[in-house]
Design a protein around this nucleic acid. Structure first.
Lengths: 231, 231
DNA sequence: ACAATTATGGAATAACGTTCCATAGCCGTC
DNA sequence: GACGGCTATGGAACGTTATTCCATAATTGT
């Protein structure tokens, strides 16, 4: 009846009741980042939560950049794992993009981690998902890279902005609407001669729907991809 | 003949041979960032170069974030100051975007500073420049924000990637072509079943023209803006 | 049972942004 | 023309960070 009933066979998998492992460290990092933001992840707090010392973590992780990239990759992998069969290529791209948007909305730190890991695992996952649908769209081979990287760069841009907004808001103890409010009033006080456009959109900012605007941008690019000649 | 000939009148502007000022600090920061990258700007090195102590800088600057945003804004302002008269709106947007691309190519740290200053001066300058041309393009009022922010987010995405690439390359002592080489070979070794698209574009990566790809993305969005209905 | 390897955790290090404070330079006023 | 109150300076000190080091514990192979 004891949990030690089969010690011999299973011992190798329980060298310790709560052994450290790369996955456990990454999961703890995600929890910390979600709870306290980008500045909440330090080797001190992480090692405290895992009941160990900072040095022990380095046996499983090469450095902090490696850790945040791995945490980001875990979120991205979960977000993109849905198979997307049966949808039109455009719909699949929209779904993929919105999935990333929602993931970054839920985990803003993913946005900044993404932009700091050029050419690495998480970015490659997104590129691959987009690229496959760009192919399915019938874009000729020599234009596929341009189309896919335009979509990717747009997604990365929005991701980075969302992450920066969230971090700024957290640092100044504002929620999202307070933050937009403060930007909106700042914009509406700009010099009318130098900043006519920005002033004119300051009002919209307060009530606008980030998610809808994001999708509108995706549709703009998709529409451009569909055009016979970009010009 | 002496430079002290008019002491009375000019004394107030030379309280010291090389008085500290916000502008002098920002110029020194730009020089430091250009020479040594993002990690090269510290209050220690900056105060050494200005022959003062770290504390003195805080009389003119609120914190490091303020400093990098101000340095970024100085570059962006110089980049966008050309008047752009007589060009078609599309051409003006292309020129503006390419100007930003070249500025970030010359000063990669501007890319990451931009993405970390949401809704602040440097970003507003770019938004305004784009927005004015979007208006001139005849985009209806309620679609202007979507069009301008799509272009802005795309530019910010590329900027962030260029900055990240440059920082990664510098950190690993690679030049640009070595960096692309390493990404390209990494991509070509991915699992063919899971990453068919990324593998197929790995080769193009080595020789591709960042600047041309960037412009192709701008044209894709412009083409979408020009379409009667994005869908 | 004993060496060798793997893994741990706490202390030490160097560097960072920021704060503090004694003091120097400058200005307007008697 | 000396003096008191701002403006500005610069160096030391603080608290925190990522990372390294190392003694030692836990596990594995022989």
């Amino acid at each position: 009846m004891s949990r030690w009933g089969m010690v011999k066979k299973t011992r190798s998998s329980q060298r310790r009741e709560e052994a450290l492992s790369r996955d456990r460290i990454i999961e703890a990092s995600i929890a910390l980042l979600d709870h306290s933001g980008e500045s909440g992840l330090t080797f001190r707090t992480l090692s405290e939560r895992l009941a160990t010392g900072p040095g022990a973590l380095y046996w499983h992780i090469v450095n902090k950049s490696d850790l945040t990239t791995a945490a980001c990759d875990a979120i991205v992998a979960r977000t993109l794992e849905a198979p997307q069969v049966g949808a039109t290529p455009k719909a699949a791209i929209r779904t993929l993009a919105l999935g990333m948007f929602d993931a970054i909305d839920a985990h803003p730190w993913v946005g900044s981690a993404l932009t700091r890991a050029p050419g690495q695992a998480p970015m490659v996952r997104i590129l691959e998902g987009i690229g496959q649908q760009v192919r399915a769209l019938g874009v000729p081979g020599d234009a596929q890279w341009a189309a896919a990287s335009a979509l990717l760069n747009y997604i990365l841009g929005v991701s980075g902005q969302n992450a920066a907004n969230a971090q700024f808001a957290r640092a100044h103890d504002l929620d999202r609407s307070n933050f937009l409010e403060s930007v909106s009033t700042a914009w509406s006080q700009l010099d009318p001669d130098e900043y006519p456009f920005t002033r004119s959109v300051a009002g919209q900012l307060r009530a606008h729907d980030d998610r809808a605007d994001f999708l509108a941008g995706i549709d703009l690019i998709l529409s451009g991809i569909g055009s016979p000649l970009a010009q």
